[in-house]
Design a protein around this nucleic acid. Structure first.
Lengths: 145, 145
DNA sequence: CGGGATCCTTCACGATACTG
DNA sequence: CAGTATCGTGAAGGATCCCG
């Protein structure tokens, strides 16, 4: 690591580029949640809660994730206090991860967003396809209000 | 534009790189919502709903956004059918934006996420500061469960 | 007024290789 | 097993200029 933490953007308020992105907590949260693997990781850990999952087990449950991104994502979550890391000092070390209470509380609004996504993303896909092919006649509008 | 739409990632399912990111609607949604200005734009439009806002008015209400990013963000939202665009063909053209019913329905889970952020981000910030300064004695742990 | 077209920088993410 | 280190790429996003 050169200057910043590996898993996040500017974690230091007061360094540089601070006035532009003031203090809006929503943006800070979306910077983490919007990260490609964060929400998936939280979801998988939430499904296993209150149990723990080991690194390899997490990898298996998150299809497509690389070991680097899993590592980076988990470090971010641990830094944020959303995930607790427990190392068993055995000969091949066994590391266990679980959601903290804070992490579990995030699962609720995240699940709401997931629910919305599964309900309405097909409609969004339809709208995008309509926008891509204006070749048809007319009168085919995306679902407006 | 070379190949893809300006405001979005791969909008075409079935092109390439499809097997890795299968069909998970949550990721698709977070790819949009996680985009820097999308959630803020939706929020501002939701506050004005069912009224409309013009381009310059939106810029004023979203501090720090560039006109390019506002343009790109709005185009994405319009493509998705979350925002409706109405052009008044006057001499200096007046363009009005408003949330569609779909966009308004997204506001609900988004507000839940905002609420969580405002409640818990201070704690996350605290946890990050604790992780940055291990210089203190001991016993100061982030708020675990 | 409401953008579009370009240029440029930064960063998220993937692939690969190495370690304790 | 559970990472860390390094390299390279594509895409987000800011700044600037121009246009109808």
């Amino acid at each position: 690591m050169t200057t910043s933490a590996p898993g996040g953007r500017e974690r230091r308020p007061g360094r540089r580029g601070d006035l532009l992105d003031p203090l809006c907590p929503t943006r800070q949260l979306l910077d983490r949640v919007g990260t490609k693997w964060t929400s998936m990781t939280v979801k998988v850990l939430a499904e296993a809660a209150p149990g723990e999952l080991r690194f390899a087990e997490l990898r298996r449950r998150i299809p497509g994730i690389s070991q680097k991104m899993l590592s980076v994502t988990l470090q971010s979550l641990v830094r944020d206090g959303l995930v607790a890391r427990r190392v068993e000092p055995t000969v091949p070390p066994a590391v266990h991860y679980r959601l903290t209470a804070l992490g579990l509380s995030l699962e609720t609004p995240l699940a709401a967003l997931r629910d919305w996504a599964e309900t309405h993303m097909p409609e969004i896909d339809r709208n995008n396809r309509l926008a891509d092919e204006p070749a048809s006649g007319q009168g085919a509008r995306p679902t407006e209000s």
